[in-house]
Amino acid sequence: MAEALNLAIIVVALLALFFLLKGRPKARAIPAGPGAGSYTPVPEGAPVLHWADGGGQFDVEVLGESRYRDTIRRLAGEHGDGKADARHTALLLPDDANPYEDKAVAVFLSGEMVGYLAPKDALAFRQRLARQEIAGQLTSCDAAVRGGALWEGKRLAYAVWLDLDLKG
């Protein structure tokens, strides 16, 4: 009798798990490129603060650059066969409306989207905003577009780096 009851409980649990997983909504796919119907936030107004505490280290990398590689390549400027090191001012926008990441921070150079902070960096950055009592506000920092050197006849990838201290 106890074996039959245990078996019945296992069957019911497996059926419930099956229907729970089967009925889950499918995640939306991220569109392939920046103009392909993708979500893009828009920064409004002037930055309320320029972060100048990175000490010229440029050790926070922007993610998702592959979606914006043409924009980043253009922002790297002409640099011949060597690597680029083009300096810009980055706008950092806490993106609460982002449908893919709830704590996203979008990064813009010269008014154009170039990617997002990594989730752990975005969380640390939002905590800094809260400590400064400017949560959710547009801020800026120095940025560098690096990479793009020629190697074995091919152009290497570019990356965007921010001069931002996320430990402080």
Rank of each mutant, 00 (worst) to 15 (best):
G147T: 06
S66R: 13
Q137C: 10
R87D: 01
L164C: 06
H88L: 12
Y68K: 08
D102F: 04
L91R: 01
N98W: 02
H88M: 13
G147K: 03
A76G: 05
L75R: 10
A144R: 12
Y116Q: 15
T71N: 02
D102P: 07
D95H: 12
A118W: 05
E78Q: 10
R155V: 08
G147L: 04
A124K: 13
A149P: 00
W151G: 01
G115N: 13
A118Q: 12
D163W: 04
L123Y: 08
W151T: 02
A106Y: 06
A84R: 01
Q127D: 13
A144C: 09
L109A: 13
G148R: 03
A84V: 02
P119S: 13
T71E: 02
V160Y: 05
D96A: 15
L150V: 02
V160M: 12
R146L: 11
L91G: 01
D102W: 02
A90P: 14
A159E: 14
A135R: 08
R155K: 14
R67H: 15
L109T: 11
Q132E: 06
A106L: 10
G136Y: 05
L156V: 07
R73F: 06
G82S: 14
A130V: 05
F125N: 10
L156A: 14
A122I: 06
V107T: 08
D165K: 04
T71G: 02
Y100R: 09
A86I: 09
A130I: 03
K154W: 00
R146Y: 02
G148D: 06
D165Y: 05
G153R: 00
D85C: 05
L150P: 00
E152R: 15
D165H: 05
R74C: 01
G64N: 09
D85H: 04
R87E: 01
T71S: 05
G111Y: 03
M113H: 15
L123V: 14
A90G: 14
D121S: 15
Q137I: 05
R69G: 05
D96E: 14
A122D: 05
L109K: 10
A86H: 08
L150D: 00
Y68E: 14
G147R: 03
A84E: 00
D102N: 07
A149F: 03
K120L: 10
A76E: 00
L109G: 11
L109M: 11
G136W: 03
G136M: 03
L162I: 12
G82V: 04
Y158I: 08
D70V: 09
D165I: 08
A106S: 15
H88A: 13
R128A: 13
L150I: 04
A104N: 01
L138I: 13
L123Q: 12
M113K: 15
D165W: 05
F125S: 11
T71A: 07
G115P: 12
G80L: 01
K120C: 01
T89R: 06
L138Y: 12
R131T: 09
A106M: 08
A104D: 00
S140G: 10
H88S: 10
N98I: 03
G148A: 11
V107K: 03
D96S: 14
